[in-house]
Amino acid sequence: MIEIDLKNNLHKVLLFIGIVSIFMFGYYLTPNKGFYDRMLKTRIEENYNGKVLEKYTDSSNHCTPMLKLSNRNIALENTFWDEVNIKDSIVKIKGESFITLYRKDRTKIIFDYEKYFEKLSKKNKPK
């Protein structure tokens, strides 16, 4: 009769499942085309507008660049956050992939998330 050491095999199975889970989770969070596509989809669903009252970094959220608008706070990518000034007006329409920034001098600046994430996707492509 063959004796099976269930306790030892259970440890091996759990270890295997743990390792596979870590690799899958790591792949999901690794900057790749799928990652940037998910980020773009999230940004497209956003909807906000208002006057910029304050710029700050949220130290409790990995120093995320933030804008305080007249009606809410929003997170932005560093590259666009640097372009924003206090008292600018900002508009993001749900379903659109871009943000429009209006300056006091009537200058209009467009930040296109689709182009931004495409550029990052190409930059971080495995070699």
Rank of each mutant, 00 (worst) to 15 (best):
M1S: 10
I2R: 15
I2V: 14
E3H: 14
D5I: 10
L6Y: 13
L6K: 10
N8I: 11
N8R: 14
N8Q: 11
V13H: 00
V13M: 01
L14D: 01
L14S: 02
L15P: 04
I17A: 04
V20N: 08
S21Q: 00
F23R: 06
F25N: 05
Y27W: 13
Y28D: 14
L29W: 13
G34E: 13
G34V: 08
F35E: 00
F35R: 01
Y36G: 00
D37T: 02
M39W: 08
M39Q: 12
L40I: 01
I44K: 04
I44G: 01
E46G: 05
N47P: 05
N49S: 15
N49I: 15
G50H: 07
L53S: 06
Y56T: 14
D58E: 04
D58L: 06
S60G: 15
N61S: 12
N61R: 13
N61K: 12
H62K: 15
C63P: 15
T64W: 09
P65G: 03
P65F: 04
L67G: 07
L67F: 06
K68P: 03
K68E: 07
K68R: 11
L69S: 05
S70M: 05
S70K: 02
N73M: 04
I74A: 03
I74G: 02
L76C: 02
E77R: 04
E77Y: 02
N78M: 12
T79H: 07
F80Y: 05
D82N: 05
E83S: 04
V84N: 00
V84L: 04
N85M: 12
I86K: 09
I90Y: 01
I90N: 01
V91I: 12
K92H: 05
K92Q: 07
K94V: 10
K94C: 09
G95C: 06
G95L: 05
F98T: 06
L101E: 13
L101C: 08
R103W: 01
K104T: 12
T107Q: 13
T107K: 15
K108I: 11
K108M: 07
I109F: 07
I110N: 09
F111H: 09
F111R: 08
E114G: 08
E114I: 14
E114Y: 09
K115T: 08
Y116F: 13
E118V: 07
K119T: 05
S121C: 04
K122V: 15
